[in-house]
Amino acid sequence: MQGHPRAQVPVTLGTFTQLYSSTPRGARLARRLVANRMDVWGFAYDSEVSEAVTLVVAELAANAVRHGRVRGRDFRVRLVLREDVVRVEVADGRADRLPVLQEPSDGDGGRGLLIVVALAERWGVVPREDGTYKTVWAEIPVSKGLGRMADERLPAGN
């Protein structure tokens, strides 16, 4: 008789969290530091995974600055590297303005979430219960065997 199968808890191989000013400069810095973190984790700058994660962060950070900015509040980027996915989380100060997926207009803008949807396996929004922040998250799949995993380059605590 077989026992009941149990869901396996995903193994976290690394995390990265950083606050940025809610400015275009902060969004650019977020993109650059995420690209660097992906390289540290073993995903070369020009790899598909690194480019996808960096692009998703760039789009979500730009949205945080453009649509989620509240004076005096920064935005936060968090990456969680697991065996099969990189979870990107961008939290900004406007819990009352949730992102809406829409067809792009002829003018500038409107394509950011479409890019996120195209690159991510899943995505969503979680407003904080106190109404002060919201987190937009996306999960980008990682092919097995790509990058250096935890025991090769990740120091303890990263």
Rank of each mutant, 00 (worst) to 15 (best):
Q2R: 13
V90Y: 07
A64G: 05
E48W: 05
E152F: 12
S105I: 09
G124N: 02
V57K: 01
D130G: 02
R87S: 12
L19R: 08
Y20A: 03
Q8K: 14
D92I: 04
L113C: 05
V100F: 03
M38F: 01
P141E: 10
R71I: 09
R25T: 10
S47Y: 08
G131D: 00
D74Y: 02
G112S: 06
G112L: 08
K144W: 11
Q102F: 09
M149G: 10
V126F: 04
P141V: 07
A64L: 04
A35C: 06
G109Q: 01
M149R: 15
G110P: 05
R28F: 03
R78L: 12
W123L: 10
D46Y: 13
P24S: 00
E139W: 11
R32D: 00
R32M: 02
T23F: 05
L81S: 13
P155C: 09
F16G: 09
R32T: 01
R111W: 07
A30M: 04
R66H: 07
V40N: 12
V86W: 12
T135M: 02
M149S: 13
F75N: 06
R87G: 08
A118K: 11
T135F: 03
S47P: 05
V90L: 08
R31M: 04
F43R: 08
A61G: 08
E83G: 14
V80Q: 15
R6D: 11
V85Y: 14
A62W: 09
L154M: 15
W41G: 08
R148N: 13
W137E: 00
R148C: 11
S22I: 05
F43K: 08
R37N: 10
T54I: 04
E48V: 07
F75G: 04
R94C: 02
G42M: 13
A95L: 01
V126T: 07
L79K: 07
A91Q: 05
L29G: 01
R82Q: 15
M1C: 11
R87F: 10
A156M: 14
H4F: 10
E51K: 10
G110Q: 05
G157M: 08
G3D: 06
